[in-house]
Design a binder for these strands. Structure first.
Lengths: 139, 139
DNA sequence: AAGTATTTTAGGAATATTACTATTTGGAGG
DNA sequence: CCTCCAAATAGTAATATTCCTAAAATACTT
């Protein structure tokens, strides 16, 4: 997704387009793969020295809630990405490698849940965990 | 699940049954619903003063990896539970209420993934997020 | 262009979580 | 019961994440 598209989404969701948000999103789009909040903050600091880590966290959280950014809960720190299309991840419990997975069988379930529980489902968080090929071989 | 069953699982998985683990699992089973690591630590400290929080975290993580304990990634802190049967959760993004969901359509996908990517899937982590009935009504 | 209501931010404090290491301990084998 | 080794623990240091508040910025209205 392009930076401008993300900003447009913000606007249409009634949120303000601040310089910080622009910088964070541009930093994020510069990485092609999932990165830590710390690295996003470092990258954003190049364009805007002094931007606070709290701002980075707060905005990443907001973008996750609106479904624009995806958070991967890894061991030492969460990873974030600007996804191309809806997909999920497999995380190796040994080496923490992250693989992308295209399939997603959940849209039907979401509608079911909404009906059954009166819960308004905004999205879901799905990760598979296990052993990647390399770690599986080495024991 | 009973405490003894969890300990038996540990044994058969080749892990040691320590007094700390017994205490942690008993603490966990005393709560009927998901609780924070902090509360588990406090509860465990009653039976074993001086038990370190690191031990609690380390063991909760281990139990999660073996599928015995379930971790719910909530806002300020993760929640843990000894689940009755395989199920998932819906977390309200506004009030953080947690609802249990029985359905799980993923066993088939796990096998697919294993074949396609050579990834040995040990489990998955699935959470729906959105607005609970109360928060949905109040806007 | 200026005024205003609301959202957002910086900065630092408070929590939550993980990493590291010397020491201890569970349990297998004798 | 005693010895040994791998696994586990306590304690502490280091990170990661969230909370809190006064001040600043955005978008809207005039």
């Amino acid at each position: 997704m392009e930076t401008d598209e993300v900003l447009a989404r913000l606007r249409s969701a009634g949120r303000k387009v601040t310089e910080q948000r622009r910088v964070i999103i541009e930093a994020l789009s510069r990485f092609g793969s999932p990165v830590t909040a710390r690295r996003i903050h470092r990258e954003a600091s190049k364009a805007m020295p002094g931007i606070s880590h709290d701002t980075v966290y707060r905005n990443l959280e907001m973008l996750c809630k609106t479904g624009t950014v995806v958070q991967i809960r890894a061991k030492g720190a969460s990873l974030f990405e600007l996804p191309e299309g809806h997909h999920h991840h497999m995380v190796c419990v040994k080496c923490s490698k992250v693989l992308c997975v295209e399939c997603c069988p959940l849209s039907f379930e979401e509608k079911m849940l909404a009906r059954q529980h009166g819960f308004r489902v905004l999205g879901h968080h799905l990760e598979f965990y296990g052993l990647c090929p390399a770690c599986n071989d080495t024991g």
